[in-house]
């Protein structure tokens, strides 16, 4: 990170502004979709998909993940991704897989 040239950085800045416009547009799209009052499952899938794309853009370009040297970041990110999946998914699977006759009392 020493003496960078001006032109490449100005190009980067143009890129950032474009990505910014993209992320904001996706947010507004998601809000618009909300007003369509879709059935819940469809709404969940669509909205999460949009959020995922936004996160990919923000992480990839704003946090310049896509231009870093790969190895170390892959380790950290892959591990986190797997674990977040484990934390998100396994407890809910467990919730649905019970011994017949079990009643979960958070549901009255």
């Amino acid at each position: 990170m020493t003496t960078d040239n001006i032109e490449p950085i100005k190009k980067e800045i143009r890129g950032y502004v474009i990505i910014f416009i993209g992320i904001v547009s996706l947010s507004l799209t998601a809000v618009f979709i909300n007003y369509l009052h879709l059935p819940l499952v469809a709404a969940i899938i669509l909205t999460i998909l949009i959020a995922a794309v936004q996160v990919f853009l923000a992480a990839g370009y704003f946090m310049h993940l896509l231009s870093e040297k790969k190895l170390v970041l892959y380790i950290v990110l892959t591990l986190t991704a797997i674990l977040v999946l484990a934390v998100l998914i396994l407890p809910s699977i467990e919730h649905h897989n019970t011994i017949p006759g079990t009643v979960y009392t958070n549901v009255s």
């Binding site: 990170m1 992320i23 709404a43 969940i44 909205t47």
Partner: peptide, 29 residues
Amino acid sequence: FTNRIEIAGLYWHFVDLVWLFLFPVLYLL
């Protein structure tokens, strides 16, 4: 100092990332 701003920026982008999931999940679903 430039590096410090980069680091602070990475943290700040992450806070934004969390909100990018938080807003739709809490407000839109």
